[in-house]
Design a protein around this nucleic acid. Structure first.
Length: 449
RNA sequence: GGCAGGGUGGCUCAGUGGUACGGCGGGGGAUUGCAAAUCCCUUAUUCGCGAGUUCGAUUCUCGCCCCUGCCUCCA
């Protein structure tokens, strides 16, 4: 069996995965800031890393998968104020909404979902260590800042160097900063904002320190995998590295994985551009499996263009697979085919895996084979697809089919008496209602168009 | 401007130093009363452009063109 290889952003190469401890993997993925509903871009990270999580488990690793919630932040404070509700109320309702979405999309719960607000001591401790070691300073305004130039490897992950960053910088120069790139670790409290006691007075943490503190607490100062969206590479992940390595003299994450964006009309889907669809909006029109299928059809590092046409295609692909499921019936899952294992071991190539799945589908449509059927279901289980009953998929589980059944029976009677004009008229009538008929050796059945 | 990642058939999406995977769509056929579903055949002399290395490159190297992202919050 080939080794698992993964593309490490740190080296910009595929590397053989070598866990720090045999059989164990620690993986940290940046979660969401809970101030609003999640969109399709969030769905992609979650499904991508869910699949990576599943693959590591399938490969026999005991995986600690940690994904945080950022539950203190400017946007949260603003949003709560605007809505006239307490911050806790907002964040809790968004966390609940997030879980709803993830469950619907078939994402397993991570091992741990730490919240920033319950990790103040760890953050404060890390900031203190940074100050002691000369990587951070308290500026005139009272904020604690990270001194970027003190960390010599700054820019390693994103391939940037400090001088380039400064010359191209669009950041307004803050005169409290020693260097324009220095970023905040601890902010002084403003009136009527949530705050926590600290050696530097009441305040709250900066965004980057949260993830460094929570990942190190739950996975150790050196762990295997850190993931997130491409857009977090800089500055978020770069800053996480600077903080954690400087504070702990540790190696921090060994492998950095970044997924590509979801685009709309070749443009990144994002809150700021306003061109996003929330997961809930999509799920009003499509089954969650369609969204999952859509996302897994492309390699995780490639851009993915969102459109109704693309979702319709994913739906058609699922229809094809469900046809085969309907034909096979429930069969116990067997082993994954070696080619599939190889594809997943090659930097989690789900697109190739899909190709193998569809090849299996075609061969099963030709001739049933118990081993092949077992492999088919093993792949589907791994992807967490085709969980519905096939008839429910095609007919809808809440649909009242009695009226349809009556018409189907009438058409069958017409057919038997060779009154094809009448039979076709009934079929057209059903088609107008969005019902397609199929005559099979076992009788006529229907499905939604 | 700096950095990163891309440009593969009508669309979408993999992949490889030696005649290009899968899905959707199109054409033909089998099946069907006709359809639907399914199966078979077919649909890129060619993988942005130019040059180089090579017996041979879509795959490696260099240059160019174009696209996207990051450099401010962002999954």
């Amino acid at each position: 069996m080939a080794d698992l290889q993964l593309f490490n952003t740190l080296s910009r190469k595929k590397e053989v995965f070598e866990p720090l401890q045999a059989k164990k993997v620690g993986m940290y993925v940046c979660g969401v800031t809970v101030y609003d509903q999640c969109h399709v871009g969030h769905a992609r990270v979650m499904i991508v890393f869910d699949t990576i999580f599943r693959w590591l488990q399938t490969s026999g690793y005991d995986v600690s998968y940690v994904r945080n919630f950022t539950d203190v932040d400017d946007k949260i404070i603003q949003r709560a104020k605007l809505a006239g509700i307490a911050i806790d109320e907002l964040t809790q309702s968004m966390i609940d909404a997030f879980h709803q979405d993830m469950d619907a999309l078939g994402c397993l719960r991570p091992t741990l979902e730490p919240r920033a607000t319950t990790h103040m001591p760890e953050m404060i401790e890390m900031i203190q260590a940074l100050i002691e070691k000369g990587f951070a300073y308290v500026c005139d305004s009272g904020d604690v800042l990270y001194a970027v130039r003190a960390f010599k490897d700054y820019g390693q992950l994103s391939g940037k160097n400090i001088d380039d960053l400064e010359s191209g910088s669009r950041v307004d120069v803050d005169h409290h900063k020693r260097d324009p790139l220095d970023f905040v670790l601890w902010k002084q409290a403003k009136a009527d904002e949530p705050s926590w006691d600290s050696p530097w007075g009441k305040g709250r943490p900066g965004w980057h320190i949260e993830c460094s503190a929570m990942s190190c607490k739950h996975l150790g100062t050196t762990f295997d995998i850190h993931g997130g969206g491409m857009d977090l590479k800089f500055p978020h992940h770069e800053n996480e590295i600077a903080q954690a390595r400087a504070a702990n003299d540790g190696g921090f994450a060994k492998y950095w994985l970044h997924n590509g964006f979801v685009n709309i009309n070749a443009e990144k889907m994002s809150k700021s551009l306003g061109n996003f669809f929330t997961i809930k909006e999509v799920l009003e029109r499509y089954d969650p499996e369609v969204l999952r299928m859509f996302i897994l059809s492309t390699h995780y590092r490639s851009p993915l263009d969102y459109s109704d046409a693309a979702l319709d295609e994913a739906k058609k692909g699922l229809d094809r697979l469900y046809e085969t499921k309907r034909k096979l019936g429930e069969v116990e899952a067997g082993l994954l085919p070696q080619r599939f294992v190889d594809a997943m071991n090659d930097d989690f190539n789900t697109a190739e895996g899909m190709a193998i799945l569809f090849e299996k589908c075609r061969s099963l449509n030709k001739s049933e084979d118990k081993k092949a059927a077992g492999e088919f279901y093993a792949m589907l289980n791994f992807f967490a697809l085709l969980k519905h009953d096939a008839d429910d998929w095609f007919q809808g589980d809440s649909e009242d089919g009695s009226n349809i059944d009556v018409l189907v029976q009438a058409r069958d009677d017409a057919k038997k008496s060779r009154d094809y004009a009448q039979a076709d008229a009934i079929r057209d009538q059903l088609l107008a209602q969005g019902i397609v008929l199929e005559d099979t050796p076992e009788g006529t059945r229907w499905k939604k168009a």
